[in-house]
Design a protein around this nucleic acid. Structure first.
Length: 260
DNA sequence: CTGGGGAAGGGGCCC
DNA sequence: CGGGCCCCTTCCCCA
């Protein structure tokens, strides 16, 4: 259940996807690496214009604000890489035992084992350095690397690079947001909000094409695909297109044509 | 069986 | 740092 693919949108512009680049009504093949993010093909980006989108505020609970849909909407051409914590990219190559440091190395920092040793080797990765200070610097990198990912969840095996991310994750275990109506618990307030709509029946997101309303923005987005002539998700093998990735997956798993 | 809707989970980004 | 929101994804169920 790897929601491993949480993409980022690039954006400086008010977090809105750049649809202007999506004018070509072409269907793209969806390489595996793009799994969840097939190239953008949604036509008429204006389908979700605020005007077409009618908030039917019916909150029974205090006030559960719902921001209007963005005026443009489309698949995001952003891809992974985000998962790999931007960790050490510079560490490996940092072994430049430059000698300009040699002279600054105090005698007692030179090889602890004796003067005959010409190299200083890291016990962790076996990299060698000509100076002890170089080795120390290198070892610091190991420390950095270790401490950087030291935020681990006590409920599961997950680790995070920041405390904030960890706390967010921990909520998925503690589920602090409880529905007063049915008692169901959620990790985040907005998840609870969405859930409450299932009780209130509120559907603030309406389709500009058929006026069908949805309680969830993402569901509207998926629904819009059904109006589209060009489906976003295409089978690599038979080129058949689907409105949802899950349908494509089903298709592929069911054997499709050849490959797979 | 397929397509679509409903509901929910979760990481990332912005404020 | 935390809250709010964004977006994507997945699972389940039904027509």
């Amino acid at each position: 259940m790897p929601r491993s693919f949480l993409v980022k949108k690039h954006t400086n512009s008010a977090r809105k996807p750049n649809y202007s680049e999506l004018d070509s009504p072409t269907v793209f093949l969806t390489p595996h690496i793009y799994r969840g993010l097939p190239p953008p093909v949604i036509p008429a980006p204006d389908t979700l214009s605020p005007a077409a989108y009618s908030p039917i505020t019916v909150w029974t609970t205090s006030s559960l604000p719902l921001s209007p849909l963005p005026s443009d909407l489309s698949p995001i051409p952003g891809y992974p890489s985000s998962l790999s914590d931007s960790s050490s990219k510079d560490h490996s190559g940092s072994e430049s035992p430059r000698s300009d440091e040699d002279e600054r190395v105090p005698p007692k920092l030179t090889d602890p084992r004796g003067a005959e040793a010409e190299k200083f080797q890291c016990g962790l990765c076996s990299k060698s350095y000509s100076t002890y200070s170089g080795l120390l610097k290198h070892k610091q990198l190991h420390w950095d690397a270790q401490t950087r990912k030291s935020f681990s969840c006590k409920y599961c095996e997950k680790e995070y690079v920041s405390l904030g991310a960890l706390k967010m994750h921990i909520r998925t275990h503690t589920l602090p947001c409880v529905c007063k109506i049915c008692g169901k618990a959620f990790s985040r307030p907005w998840l609870l909000q969405g859930h409450i709509r299932t009780h209130t029946g509120e559907k603030p997101f309406s389709c500009p094409h058929c006026n069908r309303a949805f309680a969830d923005r993402s569901n509207l987005r998926a629904h819009l695909q059904t109006h589209s002539d060009v489906k976003k998700y295409q089978c690599k093998s038979c080129s058949k297109t689907f409105s949802r990735m899950s349908l494509l997956h089903k298709h592929e798993e069911s054997g499709c044509c050849a490959a797979q």
